[in-house]
């Protein structure tokens, strides 16, 4: 670790041991969240989400493809994440890093498990289905990419317009129907530092966290979980964080619903 991060980290750790966060934020509070819908008209759907200084962008594209052999009546859903080198001095160009693959897969799992998109509705005709691409672009890193990216993917799906398919051609302009979104899933990410747990860790907190837990849920049930880093959680802690995630996800769902631009 760079000595500067080490020095900054020790300070954050010392404060957290006293139950105080750097910005004076409550331990289970989010930073301010802002959603911008449909900012990229070339994409079928798009949204930008800011959580504090973390800024992520999701673009949705749909292309005609052949279905998977074992699921001939279902479309494809593909999620990818790019940790752009302009987002952080620690990100580098090159093939996807394990971090970016984990990020994309966790977001994907929540959306899939919650049945946000009915993949059968992406069927076009025998041998032809829609492939739906969720591309996640991280523009500025300051912690908690999981929650920001799930929010952005959810928001972008909610404003996605379905292209048409006529005479073997894809029609992307004109009066298009909206993609049917069947559920709303959000995630809450907690960092564990020593024996303290906080919601929505910022970059400084993530630099020193021992463990991380992401819980994705809809209104009723848990849809995906991912623990990261070596630090462990007790079962009691897990139960507490599940309760917290149900409580906090209400705020997130409200933010998504109230942010609707059209």
């Amino acid at each position: 670790m760079h000595p500067l991060r080490q020095v900054k980290g020790e300070y954050v750790k010392g404060m957290l041991a006293k139950g105080i966060r750097e910005e004076g934020r409550g331990i289970f509070n989010y930073r301010p969240i802002k959603i911008t819908h449909s900012l990229l008209p070339n994409a079928e759907g798009s949204a930008q989400v800011e959580i504090g200084n973390t800024k992520v962008l999701v673009g949705i594209k749909l292309d005609v493809a052949t279905p998977m052999p074992d699921k001939p009546d279902e479309g494809n859903l593909m999620s990818m994440a790019e940790l752009l080198p302009l987002a952080s001095p620690e990100y580098e160009s090159g093939p996807p890093s394990p971090d970016s693959i984990e990020l994309a897969r966790v977001v994907d799992r929540g959306i899939r498990a919650a049945g946000v998109i009915d993949l059968k509705s992406l069927f076009i005709e025998e041998g032809k289905v829609w492939s739906l691409f969720i591309d996640i672009y991280v523009l500025n890193y300051d912690g908690n990419l999981f929650d920001a990216c799930t929010l952005a993917a959810m928001a972008a799906l909610s404003n996605t317009r379905m292209p048409g398919y006529e005479d073997g051609k894809v029609v992307r302009e004109g009066n298009l129907a909206k993609l049917k979104v069947n559920n709303v899933v959000t995630s809450c990410t907690f960092a564990k530092v020593g024996d303290k747990m906080v919601l929505d860790p910022n970059g400084g907190e993530e630099a020193i966290m021992d463990g991380r837990l992401t819980i994705a849920n809809d209104e009723n049930v848990i849809r995906a979980m991912q623990k990261g880093l070596p630090g462990s959680f007790t079962e009691k802690e897990l139960e507490h964080l599940i309760d917290m995630s149900f409580e906090k996800s209400k705020e997130l769902r409200d933010i998504i619903v109230n942010s609707k631009s059209d």
């Binding site: 500067l4 020095v7 900054k8 020790e10 300070y11 010392g14």
Partner: peptide, 13 residues
Amino acid sequence: MRPKVLEGGKVMD
């Protein structure tokens, strides 16, 4: 020259 160690505290750039 003349380094003085600053113990603990917060560093910002």
